[in-house]
């Protein structure tokens, strides 16, 4: 296990009557991409802003790079980069000027050209901020956070409001950060984002952590059943007891982890023996979304 970059013990925070965070604990290790996944209002931003030093905690213990962030020490801020949920950049400076202005606050810094390249704004480096698209401004947000060569980067819902193409681009930016060895604390309410980027995920719902683990196996995901679906034309023989016919006429078969290959083999063998075509054959592993909906089910969509 690597060095602890973030340590949180029994963190609590209330706003008046509302308990936004109700006692959560987790660690983030150096070099890791840690994602906090949860629906809106789950307590993600509150937790993040406590770690960033914007909010004071109600109770519990928080350490970021060995510091208490509530003290707002300059020594800590020099080692951390923050991408807030909403962007806020002076509209009248250019991309290069903006990055250089922020870089000047830090004792160590990355070369401006390199930072611009990491976020893919090279062609826009002489453009004023108010002429950038929303997605480009978001990338500039990341560039600013990188300018001081931070050890730890906070990304609070970095792709909310992006179109799918822009999200893909943003993910590549984060992948680049990982490649240069940054520790990343990410919050998101997109399952695919956590799946694609994170080494480890905590799912937070209603101020509590409901699951923690790598995206591939969180909450027993690898133990969940694989779903096989297909269609048969009318008059085909009965495929057997294990196959259920769904309301839309699709046949579905659910198998335990580790049985998928054999089951598919048996099924296609059976179809070949009978001269049948398994139309629209689909094999679905349980997605992180399935896990997430199961874990946060009562809070989602209400």
């Amino acid at each position: 296990m690597g060095e602890r970059v973030v340590e949180v013990r029994d963190l609590r925070k209330s706003y008046g009557e509302l308990e936004a965070v109700r006692g959560i604990s987790f660690n983030v290790d150096r070099g890791e991409v840690f994602a906090m996944l949860g629906p809106n209002g789950a307590g993600k931003t509150t937790t993040t802003e406590i770690l960033e030093g914007y909010r004071t905690r109600g109770a519990g213990d928080v350490r970021v790079l060995g510091h208490d962030p509530a003290k707002r020490e300059r020594a800590l801020k020099e080692r951390v980069g923050i991408v807030l949920q909403s962007t806020g950049i002076d509209p009248f400076l250019t991309v290069t000027e903006t990055i250089e202005m922020y870089a000047g606050y830090y004792p160590s810094r990355r070369p401006t050209e390199e930072v611009i390249e990491v976020v893919g704004l090279t062609e826009k480096r002489a453009t004023r901020v108010n002429k950038l698209s929303g997605g480009q401004q978001r990338r500039l947000d990341v560039a600013i956070a990188l300018a001081g060569d931070p050890e730890l980067l906070f990304l609070d819902e970095p792709t909310t409001g992006f179109d799918p193409g822009a999200r893909r681009n943003a993910w590549e930016v984060v992948k680049n950060l990982i490649a240069i060895g940054k520790t990343v604390f990410l919050t998101t309410h997109f399952m695919d984002e956590a799946q694609y980027l994170a080494d480890r995920v905590v799912v937070i719902a209603d101020g509590l952590i409901v699951a923690e683990g790598p995206p591939a196996s969180i909450a027993g995901r690898e133990q969940m059943r694989t779903r096989i679906r297909f269609r048969l034309h009318d008059g085909a023989p009965d495929p057997g007891d294990r196959v259920h016919r769904l309301a839309d006429g699709t046949h579905e078969l659910q198998v335990e982890a580790g049985e998928t290959t054999k089951t598919v083999h048996d099924l296609t063998g059976w179809a070949l023996d009978h001269g049948l075509e398994l139309e629209a054959l689909e094999i679905t592993l349980p997605t992180l979304e399935d896990v997430y909906l199961q874990l946060t089910g009562s809070e989602v969509g209400t």
Binding site: Y54, V80, L84, G88, Y106, I144, G148
Partner: peptide, 15 residues
């Protein structure tokens, strides 16, 4: 600048 989030961002830097 406050409402645009520029002050908040500045607050998160060592400046």
């Amino acid at each position: 600048q406050r409402d645009a989030g520029i002050l908040k961002r500045t607050r998160g830097t060592p400046l």
